[in-house]
Amino acid sequence: MTAETPDRMRPDTDESLRLLSAVERTLTQLLDDALRAEGSDIDQWRILHLLAERGGCPMTVVAEHTLMLAPRLSKLVDRMVSANLVIRRPDEQDRRRVLIAVSARGRQVLDGWNAATEAAQRDVRDVLGPDAEVLDDALRRISARLSGVADPV
């Protein structure tokens, strides 16, 4: 960049960060609205989605994935256990540890919640087109570097 480059064109301005935050808020609101119409919210959806993909997970993994603090996550998981969406079970590798897993009812509910969010997800894919993979890669690298984790492969 040269000295004549306008501020709005410089990568060192906060415009990219502001836009990223604005897009995240808008997408979160779209997803949350769609899920609330189905009696859920984005946190429950993220938890069930993670558990359906990975199987049983310890609370620390769920907290990291959902970006939730442990006390709030524990309360939400308690409600999800009561609603028979998830179950707690001992870790077969380490009996001292408890894993959370999606229940059969949770899988059924998740199918409906995924359908409810499909329109918002499709809109994002349509806007990004072939750049979707590039954006995913860039966001993974940013996240990994800022969290001090080695670059994902």
Results as ranks from 00 to 15, higher is better:
1 M>Y: 07
2 T>F: 12
3 A>R: 09
4 E>P: 02
5 T>C: 01
6 P>I: 04
8 R>G: 02
11 P>S: 10
12 D>M: 06
14 D>H: 05
17 L>Y: 06
18 R>W: 09
19 L>E: 11
23 V>A: 06
25 R>F: 11
27 L>G: 02
27 L>C: 11
27 L>N: 11
31 L>Y: 02
31 L>M: 12
32 D>Q: 05
34 A>H: 07
38 E>S: 07
42 I>L: 11
42 I>A: 00
43 D>S: 11
47 I>P: 05
48 L>S: 03
54 R>H: 12
54 R>M: 07
55 G>S: 05
56 G>M: 06
61 V>M: 12
63 A>S: 14
63 A>C: 04
66 T>Q: 04
68 M>Q: 10
69 L>D: 13
75 K>E: 14
80 M>G: 08
81 V>A: 08
84 N>D: 15
90 P>F: 04
92 E>S: 15
94 D>P: 03
98 V>M: 13
98 V>K: 14
102 V>Q: 02
103 S>L: 05
104 A>G: 10
105 R>F: 10
105 R>E: 15
113 W>K: 11
120 A>M: 00
124 V>R: 04
126 D>V: 08
127 V>S: 02
136 D>Y: 09
137 D>C: 09
138 A>S: 11
140 R>L: 12
140 R>Q: 10
145 R>E: 14
145 R>S: 13
147 S>Y: 08
